[in-house]
């Protein structure tokens, strides 16, 4: 439990005044208990009561009607706030848009990615070699796939 020294009690009264409800919440209960034990400390609180009453008379009591009207109309005249709640939808949308843009860019540059197919003779030679390997495989000749050292 928090305990309060007399010096701290006086310091708090000096700062926050005579109303314990204005004192820091963590020290209020200890202050109440200290006053019960040491009734003479109550005088510290009553000494501050006069200034407290003055300060209470200065509490906020409204604002000019013209200002209030202006502030109430502010959402109509000011730009709309960014819909931050829609961010969860925005992120995937940006992702898809980026992917689509990248796809279009790739498509536009497809010439650069065409395979070098070589001449017609080369193609036929490759096809013949592949066919020979397949036939050898069908005949169980695995040696056809053995790598030459």
């Amino acid at each position: 439990m928090t305990t309060l020294s007399e010096a701290r009690f006086r310091k708090l009264a000096d700062a926050y005044g005579g109303k314990l409800e204005r004192w820091p919440a963590a020290e209020r209960q200890a202050a109440r208990e200290l006053v019960l034990k040491r009734p003479e400390l109550r005088a510290c609180l009553t000494e501050e009561a006069e200034l407290d009453a003055w300060l209470d008379s200065g509490r906020a009591d409204g604002m000019p009607a013209s200002l209030l009207e202006r502030l109430e109309a502010l959402p109509e005249t000011a730009p709309q706030p960014f819909p931050w709640h829609a961010r969860s939808l925005l992120k995937p949308a940006i992702g898809w848009a980026f992917a689509a843009a990248f796809g279009l860019w790739l498509g536009a540059r497809s010439d650069a990615f065409e395979l070098d197919t070589g001449s017609q003779d080369t193609i036929e030679a490759r096809q013949s070699a592949e066919e020979a390997e397949l036939l050898a495989l069908a005949a169980g000749d695995l040696g056809a796939f053995e790598e030459t050292p």
Binding site: L67, R70, L71, L74, P81, W84
Partner: peptide, 14 residues
């Protein structure tokens, strides 16, 4: 100042 404060509330609540 009050108007700027509430404008900020409206536009920068985030």
């Amino acid at each position: 100042v009050v108007q700027e404060t509430f404008l900020r509330l409206w536009l920068r609540a985030k």
